[in-house]
Design a binder for these strands. Structure first.
Ligand SMILES: NC(=O)c1ccc[n+]([C@@H]2O[C@H](COP(=O)([O-])OP(=O)(O)OC[C@H]3O[C@@H](n4cnc5c(N)ncnc54)[C@H](O)[C@@H]3O)[C@@H](O)[C@H]2O)c1
Ligand SMILES: NC(=O)c1ccc[n+]([C@@H]2O[C@H](COP(=O)([O-])OP(=O)(O)OC[C@H]3O[C@@H](n4cnc5c(N)ncnc54)[C@H](O)[C@@H]3O)[C@@H](O)[C@H]2O)c1
Lengths: 212, 212
DNA sequence: TTTTTATTGAAAATTATTTCACAAATCGTC
DNA sequence: GACGATTTGTGAAATAATTTTCAATAAAAA
């Protein structure tokens, strides 16, 4: 299924490249060099060339990369040529902000269902997305073939909710709770831990001052 | 200032350890092994021991680590024994959610000032945090000695706002916009790019199936 | 006390990622 | 069609991070 496993570090950069290629495309630029890309995305140009080279020879020496064909290529690679549905669980403070933010503006991902325990939220529509009670979680995930869940519930219920989602066939979880949830090996968790990010930032400021 | 530069990968894990040590402390456990820690934070136990060893011999062979002294140590290292003030710029959708979320519950970071261009927001208080007009940005950052900014403005103004914040003395930026902002080398940017995270997750599901 | 079991800390090995540096290819111009 | 300027793609080197391994030590059990 994969084109001989790309390094993870590279995979994490692909969306960054993809995004900037879209910007170039929208401004009718049709060529770009690794140096120019480097300045925009803040990744070393050699790293960019190396990253691209895992997918074959995408550029032309002495010329650079053709924006349109590169864009088309990455769109395919990132599955952005199809719409991907995701579910959001926990329509609270953060969940609402994410619902309201239209991921679909920037990417081909759409939150197509949301879930919450609160009875007053059940069967309402928030920012155009239907909210279901938790009792329908499994059925909706299965019916809508949803493989990706955004988890914005309180930490205390995160593991239980995760287990339920996985029972419903979910394969990827974007986890905003601070809990490192346990999942089977065929399920991928991407943690977004905002408190951590702040603490890490503070650590770097205190300990890695004025260099690099 | 630093204890002979710790690897970045290690630095990023410190808040995760710190957080779990607090949980152990609160449940009156007074010792913990790297294996137990490993299960909770989902980091290999050898990596944990390696990480800790950069700070010296913190544990006892055949025994493990003393929760309280380890906690005290990391609290110091992470500067969590003092309160750190941060500013939030852009009180919109996401900014509001972050304001509402009290980082201070989980860490010694507090949003002490927020800023927005919208005139109707200026000089109001949201979730206990005063909102200032952008004209006061520089003065407030300087007066309050704020070194950290959470950036939740639209992408189109991200660079300008960043420049202003840096002019006000800011040294670290938690950047929620998709723009990779340009900053001088003595300023640190931590990017939180949610669209990217989703796309990366999709990529991993499609290309790194059932293993590792 | 002695033995067994648990567990760290550190050196070494391994694996992953980034960066250097340059030959080869291509473009645009004369 | 040759020339100079660019810019890729990639070996090789450098750097970073993880994992293996095991001697040393502490606690618990015998
Ligand atoms: N809000 C932030 O800015 C922020 C920042 C960092 C981390 N987080 C984390 O994100 C998560 C959500 O934070 P929040 O501020 O939105 O909390 P919140 O309390 O506002 O929202 C949580 C929502 O989950 C729902 N919920 C509770 N139990 C549930 C269950 N069993 N099944 C389904 N839904 C359930 C609640 O009804 C509520 O609507 C938390 O884990 C928090 O630690 C939030
Ligand atoms: N909301 C989300 O879930 C989400 C998800 C991913 C990324 N983001 C990113 O986070 C950022 C904010 O998103 P949002 O949904 O909160 O947008 P938003 O439009 O709701 O909020 C932006 C806020 O910034 C303020 N603002 C505009 N120009 C400003 C300026 N020059 N100085 C100060 N304030 C200014 C606006 O008045 C508004 O209150 C965007 O860059 C977005 O791409 C948001």
């Amino acid at each position: 299924m994969a084109e001989t496993k790309i390094p993870k570090a590279t995979a994490k950069r692909l969306p960054i490249y993809y995004r900037y290629l879209n910007i170039l495309h929208d401004s009718d630029k049709n060529r770009v060099s690794s140096t120019e890309l480097s300045e925009a995305v803040k990744v070393d140009s050699a790293t960019i060339r190396r990253d691209f080279s895992y997918f074959g020879a995408l550029g032309k020496r002495g010329y650079g990369y053709d924006v349109d064909s590169l864009l088309k290529f990455f769109k395919k690679i990132l599955n952005q040529d199809k719409l991907t549905n995701a579910a959001l669980i926990g329509v609270g403070n953060l969940g609402n902000a994410l619902l309201n933010f239209n991921f679909h503006q920037n990417s081909n991902v759409r939150i197509s269902a949301a879930f919450d325990v609160r009875p007053d939220l059940a069967n309402t529509v928030q920012s155009g997305v239907p909210i279901y009670p938790m009792s329908e979680l499994r059925k909706q995930l299965e019916d809508q073939q949803i493989k990706i869940v955004i988890l914005t519930v309180p930490e205390s219920v995160a593991q239980n909710v995760t287990d339920d989602a996985i029972a419903g066939g979910v394969r990827g979880i974007l986890n905003f709770t601070p809990l490192r949830v346990s999942v089977p090996t065929n399920v991928r968790v991407q943690n977004v831990d905002l408190t951590n990010e702040l603490q890490t930032l503070i650590y770097f400021l205190d300990h890695y001052n004025e260099e690099e």
